[in-house]
């Protein structure tokens, strides 16, 4: 008789735990306004990434098409996987001295792991991390970017 009582108890206990679980899922079913998912491409306008989000390396230019990069190559040294290539050139300054300057700051987005070490190492703060994250392109060559704009030059007063 005791065994029968135990048996019935296990049945009811088991059903009870099942109902507890169903209560949780059911409570969410009947609260559809608690949805947590986002409708991604539709919410592009309102979707804002955090300002520290590491989406890509960019080189900001001011309104005179000037940047802060001296072409020192420290970012290239700090990059763990060779996604930055610096091609520098020498230019003549106004007082007739030769000075190193950036010709092309080549950035291979396809190889970048967004570790932030180049930005951290940059002595002049010429490169920063951008928040753009939609990088899909049809052609892999498009992932290789030149960060300094054509015709841009270094801003006044930037020292190495």
């Amino acid at each position: 008789m005791n065994g029968l009582f135990e048996y019935i108890k296990t049945v009811f206990k088991g059903v009870g735990t099942l109902l507890t679980g169903m209560k949780i899922t059911g409570s969410y079913f009947f609260r559809p306004w608690k949805h947590v998912t986002q409708q991604y491409p539709e919410n592009r306008e309102t979707l804002k990434m955090f300002d520290r989000f590491r989406g890509e390396v960019i080189m900001p230019h001011n309104e005179n098409n000037e940047h802060l990069c001296t072409g020192c190559g420290i970012c290239e040294l700090n990059c763990p996987n060779g996604s930055i290539e610096i091609i520098s050139m020498s230019v003549l300054t106004e007082d007739g001295k030769k000075k190193r300057a950036i010709d092309k700051h080549i950035y291979h987005l396809g190889m970048c792991t967004f570790c932030n070490l180049c930005v951290k190492a940059c002595p002049t703060g010429a490169i920063i991390m951008g928040q753009e994250f939609e990088h899909a392109v049809w052609d892999r060559t498009k992932l290789t970017k030149v960060l300094n704009l054509p015709g841009s030059k270094i801003a006044q007063g930037v020292k190495e």
Binding site: F53, R54, C115
Partner: peptide, 23 residues
């Protein structure tokens, strides 16, 4: 993401400290 800049591959440490201060 807000503090480290990435969601999973955070890379928030450097020898001697942190990459950034907390947000």
């Amino acid at each position: 993401e807000e503090t480290c800049g990435a969601r999973m591959t955070v890379n928030y440490n450097l020898p001697g400290g942190l990459m950034f201060d907390i947000h």
